[in-house]
Nucleic acid binder design. Structure first.
Length: 354
DNA sequence: TAGGCCATCTGGTCCT
DNA sequence: AGGACCAGATGGCCTA
C-alpha cells in the first residue's frame, strides 16, 4: 500500500510550501515521509488510531472532515466514555494550522538536535583523540569525556602522576574496541597489551573508583622505530600515515601528504600525562607551525632515558584482535593531539613541573 | 546481510 | 496555545 502511495505522485501533497523544509529534507524520500506525516496529522485530528500503513493507503476524501464524536454516547462496545475536553470540530482552517504547527515543531526539533550535535562536536574536540574524519560516536564521546574528567580529577585529587597505561585504561573504561584502539593509538600504546591488562583488572580497580598508580614497565614512545624512519614505508601504520605524525614532528619528511587540509587549528587538550603537556601555540593553525608542537611523549620521569621503541607502535598489522584498526590509524593532522589551553591544563602543567 | 549509528518525524508531557 | 524536551519508530548509510 505504501509502495503504491509513494509511487503515485498524485497522492503526494505539496508539503514543501512550508518554509525551511526543502533545504533540510533530502528529496523524494523526505517528501514521502511528509506524505505520511500529513496522513498521520489528519488521522490524529480525527482521533484515529489506525496504523500508519493502514491510513496511508487510503485515498478517501476527507476535506473538512467532521470530528468523530469520540466522547459521545456512541462509544464502541462497553468502553467508558472518554473524559477530558471535548474535541472541537476540525475545520479546514484548524487542520491547516495543525499541520503548520507540526511542521514548525519538526523544524524546531531539527534545530534542537543540530544544536545538540554541535555541542557534541565541541565535546569531541576537547576529549582525547579528536579526529575530523574518524569521529567518535555520540555515546563513545560521552563515555570518553566522562573517563577523561575522571582521570583528570584523579590526577588532581591524588597529586600523583599516573603512568600512561593507567591513564589510558581509565580513559578507555567502557569504550568499544575500536575507540579503545583509537585512544591507545593516540597515546602510542600497544592496545593489545594494555587491554589484556585492563581485562585482568576490570571489576576491581575501576569498580572501586580508585585511580591506580600501579607500576608498569612503560617506556614512553619517542617513535624511533625503524618502521617510522623517513623513507620506510614497510610498516603498516606508515601506510596509513600514522608514523608520519612523528616524522613531521621529529624532523621527518614533512611530506605534504601529512598536511591534511582538514586541519582546523587548535582543538584538543594536551594528551600527554607525563609532565609535558603539549600545548599548541595559539593561532598556529598552519601545518608549518604544527611542526613546532611539543609533542612530548617521552618519559620525563626518566632523565636521560633514551627514547626507545619498546612500546611504540607495535600494533598488530591485521585485524582488530591484534591491534589497531586501519580506520583508526589517522594522519597526524587529522588525528589531533590535544593543544587547546584551558585552566585545568595550566594547573596540571604547573603540577607536573613542580 | 546484520548490526551500529544517525537524522528525522512524531506524539506525549510538562511548563510558561 | 505554543515551546522545550523526551523517547519510540523508521529508514538510510556504512562496515564487517
Amino acid at each position: 500500500m505504501l509502495t503504491r502511495l509513494f509511487s503515485d505522485p498524485s497522492l503526494l501533497p505539496d508539503v514543501q510550501k512550508y518554509s525551511g523544509w526543502a533545504e533540510e529534507s533530502d528529496g523524494e524520500d523526505s517528501k514521502m515521509k511528509e506524505d505520511e506525516q500529513d496522513d498521520m496529522e489528519e488521522s490524529e485530528m480525527r482521533g484515529d488510531s489506525r496504523t500508519q500503513s493502514e491510513h496511508a493507503g487510503e485515498d478517501e476524501e476527507d476535506e473538512g472532515v467532521e470530528e468523530e464524536d469520540d466522547d459521545g454516547e456512541d462509544t464502541e462496545g462497553d468502553r467508558p466514555k472518554k473524559r477530558g475536553p471535548k474535541k472541537r470540530k476540525m475545520t479546514q482552517a484548524r487542520i491547516e494550522r495543525s499541520k503548520l504547527r507540526r511542521v514548525k515543531a519538526n523544524a524546531r526539533e531539527r534545530t534542537r538536535m543540530h544544536d545538540l550535535n554541535s555541542a557534541l562536536d565541541n565535546l569531541r574536540k576537547v576529549v582525547p583523540c579528536y579526529s575530523k574524519t574518524q569521529k567518535l560516536s555520540k555515546i563513545e564521546t560521552l563515555r570518553l569525556a566522562k573517563n577523561y574528567i575522571w582521570a583528570l580529577s584523579e590526577i588532581l585529587r591524588s597529586g600523583k602522576r599516573p603512568d600512561l597505561v593507567s591513564y589510558v585504561q581509565t580513559l578507555c573504561k567502557g569504550l568499544s574496541q575500536p575507540t579503545t584502539n583509537l585512544v591507545a593509538g593516540c597515546l602510542q600504546l600497544n592496545s593489545r597489551n594494555f587491554l589484556t591488562e585492563q581485562q585482568c583488572q576490570d571489576g576491581g580497580r575501576y569498580g572501586s573508583g580508585s585511580f591506580s598508580m600501579h607500576s608498569y614497565p612503560y617506556q614512553c614512545a619517542r617513535l624511533s622505530s625503524p618502521h617510522c624512519q623517513p623513507g620506510s614505508n614497510s610498516h603498516p601504520l606508515r601506510t596509513h600515515g600514522y608514523c608520519s605524525a612523528y616524522d613531521s614532528l621529529y624532523g621527518g619528511s614533512g611530506s605534504p601528504e601529512y598536511n591534511s587540509p582538514e586541519y582546523e587549528g587548535p582543538l584538543s587538550p594536551p594528551l600527554c600525562i607525563n609532565g609535558n603537556f603539549s600545548l599548541k601555540h595559539q593561532g598556529s593553525a598552519s601545518p608549518e607551525n604544527e611542526k613546532g608542537y611539543h609533542y612530548s611523549m617521552h618519559y620525563s620521569g626518566l632523565p636521560g632515558s633514551r627514547p626507545t621503541g619498546a612500546h611504540n607502535l607495535v600494533f598488530g598489522s591485521s585485524g582488530a584482535r591484534s591491534g589497531i584498526h586501519s580506520e583508526n590509524v589517522l594522519p597526524y593532522h587529522d588525528m589531533h593531539l590535544h593543544h587547546e589551553r584551558a585552566p585545568v591544563y595550566d594547573e596540571l602543567n604547573a603540577f607536573f613541573h613542580n
